[in-house]
Each structure stands twice: as C-alpha cells, then as structure tokens.
Design a protein around this nucleic acid. Structure first.
Lengths: 167, 167
DNA sequence: TTAAACTTTCAATAATTATTGAAAGTTTAA
DNA sequence: TTAAACTTTCAATAATTATTGAAAGTTTAA
C-alpha cells in the first residue's frame, strides 16, 4: 500500500466511523483530511480532495468549528481562509467525549431521572418501570462520568493505572 | 407524570438514543418496551403497543435476538412466541459494548493498523500520515480495551475503584 | 393430510438525512 | 465607492435508511 491508497482508505474509514462519534460522513472526512495534512487547507482544497460541493464543505467546516475541533487559520497576505484540526489525539478524544455527553447523554439522563421519579401507585407495572429506569439512570450517569473523567486527564498515568487495575 | 406518560416518554427517548449504541429506532423501542414489561410479550402485543407493522416487528426482534439481548420464551399451551429482554442493566451494557466492539470498532482498528504500517518513503506527508494514524490506532485500541474490561466485571468493585482513582 | 395460526421475506414505498449549486451576502484591495 | 474574491444560505434534489403489507413459508393440532 502506497501513500495515496492509504490516505483514501483512512479518510473513508474515518468517515464511515462518524456515526460512532455522532457526526455525519462529510464532517468526519473533512476532519480526517485535515488530521493527516501537513499544513492548513483552504475550502477550495478540501472540496477538490473530497469531491464535495462548496455548500457542503462550508456547512460541515462550520460544524467542526462549532464542535471545537477545527480552527480557522489566517495566513498573512492570503485572502481565503485556511483550516486546521486539533492534531493531538488525546485532546481530540477529550473534546469529542465532552460534546457528545453534553449534546446527547445529558438530556437522556435528565429524562431517565424524571421518568424514574414518578409517583409509585403500588401497581406492579409502575414498580417495574421505576425499578428499571432507575437502574438505567444510575448506569448511564456512572458511565458518562467515568468516560469524561478518563478522557480529561491529559497525561496518561491514570489510563495506565486503570489498565493495570482491570487487567 | 403518570404511568402511561412516563412509559411513552421512556420508550421514545430510548428509541432516539438507539443511534448512540448503534441500533435503529424500532429496535431500541422494542427493547425498551420489553425492558419495562412485567411479562414476556407476543409479536401481536409489541405491534399494537408501538404501532409498527408485523414485518418491522419480526425483523427487529430477530436482530435483537441476534445481538443476544432478547430471547424467545415458550409458554406451554400457547401457540405464539413470547419475547423478553435481558433485565439486568450491567449485563445489558456488557453485551452491547461487546457487540459494538466486534461489529464496528475492531474492523476500524484493523484498518488503522494497516494504514499506519505503510512503507515510510521519507516524504513529509507520508510521515504525517503514519504518525497520526499510529496515534489514532493506539488510542482506539486502548479505549476499546478499557471499555470492554470495565463492563465485563459484573460486580462493580472495579468501577468503584476506578471512580475513586480518577475523582 | 389439512387447514388454521402463526412468522418471515422482500419488493414497493415512505421517511429521513445529506448534498448540490446558484443566489445572496460579506470582506478586502485599490 | 466599486468590483473582485471570497463564504454562507437555503430550496430543490439525491441518496440512504426504515417501514409497510401482502405473499410465501412454517408449525402444530386434530
């Protein structure tokens, strides 16, 4: 496998993995392209590389900026804007985990809490609903907290300690 | 909020959360319905409760069985099949994490490994590709291993230890 | 066997989500 | 100011994914 093939493979794999971290294909591909680029890229360059339209590129770049994983780079003397992504994987993981938690997990936790707090009328079905949603609420809250804590430590001594602990 | 309202809210929330654990809406809703049911349900009952077609119910039930979180229950003297889901949240989390890892994360890890092992021709762009995909490969592999290990311990002494460690 | 009571399959269709591209908007240099 | 060089917006369209429902298949009781 040579450079070009590897590059295409990486970008398309990372694109289809987008669903796993909650973003769409084009957004993930743009991030992937910037991630392996040796320099910031312009919108024109991104469009050309990924074969996507101007509108699509513009919207998805804006979303990536909104997520906080892509930044605009102003190159002196240049009219057009250039873009670059966070290059450190640990920091990338931190931002993604935090955003996903905020956008998707927190709202669910809130609803689980509400649902599990309904008045117990003593019937079997109400009992079951309360019991099960309460268990789900606790699990979700714990898992969310753990992932965030984990990923928030830049140095990985914690990771190492945890790995040692659970091996 | 009364039982019926809470039930509907829970099922629709869990349904839309499906994307987070990699399954579709109907599949997640069926699982949610079974999760708070006090007894196994027939296909007829599931269709009626969720207002979905027979075909849809049949296919998604099959998928849930395939994932290993729903089982058929034979009730003596009854012709039709009944279904129930795993009721223990810890076990549920274990199965989901394992399946997601197997179906989605493992294939990506393999590709990252391949891409990061291409021959280094000494150019800057090849260097960057190798460096960045290697970092991503390590991170993905570590995260996957951690989540699986974590969720694999039924007792939660590990969870507690980890929480203490990272707080 | 047969026929009733069920489940599964799958082509057609509906719903959802992503993408295009042209028009409108904005910025900058002269 | 103006016009060239850019970016953003958004209605139309394409692509993808989920759902339906009728026909085919299977199982069981008699």
């Amino acid at each position: 496998m040579k450079y070009e093939e590897a590059k295409i493979k990486f970008i398309s794999t990372w694109g289809s993995l987008g669903s796993l971290w909650g973003i769409n294909k084009a957004m993930a591909q743009i991030q992937a392209l910037l991630f392996i680029s040796t320099k910031p890229l312009s919108m024109e360059e991104i469009m050309k590389e990924l074969q996507i339209s101007r509108g699509n590129t513009s919207m998805n770049l804006r979303q990536l900026i909104d997520w906080g994983i892509v930044t605009k780079e102003i190159i002196p003397g240049e009219r057009r804007e250039y873009f670059q992504t966070e290059k450190d994987v640990q920091e990338l993981a931190r931002v993604i985990a935090k955003e996903r938690s905020r956008r998707e997990i927190q709202p669910v936790i809130k609803i689980l809490k509400d649902v599990s707090s309904i008045e117990d009328d003593g019937t079997e079905k109400t009992n079951e609903l309360i019991k099960q949603t309460k268990a789900l609420h606790e699990l979700t809250e714990t898992a969310d907290a753990m992932i965030n804590k984990m990923v928030n430590h830049k140095q990985n001594w914690v990771t190492k300690s945890i790995l040692k602990l659970i091996k």
